[in-house]
Amino acid sequence: MSIDLPGPIADYVKANARLDVDGMVKPFLTDALFIDNGKRFEGHAAIRKLFEEEVVPVKAIFTPDTLREDNGQVVVEGPAHGDFPGSPLRFTYRFTLVDGAIETLEATI
């Protein structure tokens, strides 16, 4: 299923499919917040470290299959596949976009 994602989310998903850390960080605001199952990562350096230490080593690739808006957020759901226990796991990503960039991303299983 192909869905029409907003630009910064599409850029993030495409970069994630390549496990391209620079590309994954680029759509985020400099002071963005990424909340990963309750753990908070603030700013590019912390988000980059998360990707380098927890996404790339297990080759976690998110494949969105649903899209909706909820209270001003863009909610994207789909499986993440990789070399981790339970793969694939279904994730919900809640994005807050500001000025064409990701301000907040909250990822939950």
Rank of each mutant, 00 (worst) to 15 (best):
Met1Leu: 01
Ile3Cys: 03
Leu5Gln: 00
Pro6Cys: 05
Pro6Val: 06
Ala10Trp: 10
Asp11Phe: 10
Tyr12Gln: 05
Lys14Glu: 08
Ala15Cys: 04
Arg18Ala: 07
Asp20Asn: 02
Val21Cys: 03
Asp22Tyr: 00
Gly23Trp: 04
Gly23Phe: 07
Met24Thr: 02
Pro27Gln: 03
Pro27Trp: 06
Asp31Ala: 13
Gly38Asn: 11
Phe41Met: 15
Phe41Leu: 14
Glu42Trp: 10
Ala45Lys: 13
Arg48Pro: 07
Lys49Gly: 14
Lys49Glu: 14
Glu52Ala: 13
Val55Trp: 10
Val55Cys: 11
Val56Asn: 12
Val56Thr: 09
Pro57Trp: 09
Ala60Asp: 09
Ile61Gln: 08
Thr63Gly: 11
Thr63His: 11
Pro64Thr: 06
Asn71Leu: 15
Gly72Ile: 06
Gly72Glu: 09
Gly72Arg: 06
Val74Lys: 14
Val75Gln: 04
Val76Asp: 00
Glu77Trp: 12
Ala80Ser: 10
Ser87Lys: 04
Pro88Gln: 02
Pro88Trp: 07
Pro88Thr: 02
Leu89Gln: 02
Phe91Cys: 04
Phe91Tyr: 13
Phe91Thr: 05
Thr92His: 06
Phe95Leu: 06
Thr96Glu: 15
Thr96Pro: 12
Leu97Met: 00
Leu97Ala: 09
Gly100Phe: 08
Ala101Trp: 02
Glu103Gln: 14
Glu103Thr: 11
Glu103His: 07
Glu106Val: 03
Thr108His: 09
